[in-house]
Simulated assay, not measured.
Amino acid sequence: MTWKNHSVLMEFVFLAYPSHPELCVLSFLGVSLVYALVITGNVLIVVAIHTEARLHTPMYYFLGSLSGIELCYTAVVVPHIMANLLQSDKTITLLGCATQMIFFIGLGSADCFLLAVMAYDRYVAICHPLQYPLIMTLTLCVRLVVASVVIGLFLSLQLVVFIFCLPFCRTRGIQHFFCDVPPVMRLVCAKSHIHEQSVLVAATLAIAVPFFLIATSYGFIVTTVLKIHSAAGCHRAFSTCSSHLMVVLLQYGCCAFMYLRPNSSYNPNHDQFISLVYTLGTPLLNPLIYTLRNNEMKGAIGRVLTRNYLSHNN
């Protein structure tokens, strides 16, 4: 039997959903509300950056790209979660599970690489301000964003192909809300140290390497800022980085907990909660962190909302 035929016949069942219909409806309403806020916040950032000429700079271009990736990232799994909450059949085919995992892991990895790119942008702006316009050109910015997405999807494809080429046990139940690496790996029969290390290597490339680049960039930034004698200059330099650092800590904290650890330490209840944090919580908090701590973004979003309100009334 070919993998294609096998993928059509084999299905997984998600076991993490509530069993009572009332809890499913309440969960659906909660997830719908959060998802609506995620879409609204990130779309406002993208529209504000696109329409405001003063925000046409590399820093805001990367921020808009981050919001765009997170819109796609949540769209891979959240609508499927919402549909499962309202239907009794909570199954997914093997091929559907693999496809969902490719894009979920790939776009999540692209998120991590893009945060590293944003740290590099701050490094150039603070450590080499005179050369900044010459280094961070529009062409380079586009290439860095495209490279983040391509590398993320490439690493994800390699990982998912490796996992789904392994033999699965007869047990079809996934202790999760969607297809993610740790719960799916629990269903693999041919468990070995090599398989576990292979997954760990892929996770390291997608998480630890970008984090190392971010840490290195901020090491140079801190060294440069400490040489600034003006208190106002130090405050301005750190304020441009604080929002990014908060997002990095939130994103990498959750990802490291989920993927940079042995498979034997997998705990379904803990991991289900953490997965909801980085699937819904992080895309929700990122727009809030960047807008609440950035007067330019707050002003731009306010003008977008005002224009929409006036055009609607007219």
Rank of each mutant, 00 (worst) to 15 (best):
P210T: 09
V46I: 13
A202M: 13
N5G: 06
G302R: 12
L187E: 05
A16D: 06
V31K: 08
R122W: 01
N269D: 14
T282W: 10
L153F: 05
E52P: 00
F177P: 03
R307I: 10
L144E: 06
F212L: 12
V304Y: 03
F273Q: 13
T57K: 10
G253H: 01
G30S: 15
A237H: 02
P133Q: 07
L134C: 11
Y132C: 09
L37C: 11
L166I: 07
V160T: 08
S67Y: 02
G281T: 07
P283W: 03
A208T: 12
I126R: 00
Q272F: 05
V248R: 02
S27T: 11
G233T: 03
Q131K: 11
R261C: 10
L305V: 06
A208H: 00
S311L: 15
T99F: 12
L15D: 14
I274G: 04
A208E: 08
I194C: 14
N269H: 15
P182R: 00
Y35T: 01
L95I: 10
P182D: 03
I126Q: 01
S217I: 01
L280C: 14
F168K: 00
P183H: 01
L157A: 07
A116S: 12
G41L: 05
A36W: 06
A53M: 09
L205K: 03
H195P: 00
F168H: 04
L140N: 07
Q272T: 07
L245S: 06
N267F: 12
V13F: 13
L63E: 01
K298D: 04
A83D: 15
F162A: 08
Q175Y: 09
S243D: 02
A203Y: 00
G219C: 09
G233P: 02
I49R: 00
N314T: 14
N269R: 14
K90P: 07
Y120V: 00
L94M: 15
V31D: 08
H50K: 11
I194E: 11
Q158P: 00
V150T: 11
V46M: 11
F177E: 03
V161H: 11
Y290T: 04
L44I: 04
P182K: 03
N269E: 15
K191L: 11
C112H: 10
Y278K: 09
V8Y: 15
R236D: 11
A256Y: 15
R293G: 11
C112A: 09
K298E: 12
L153Y: 04
G106Y: 01
L33T: 14
D271V: 09
L276E: 07
N263D: 15
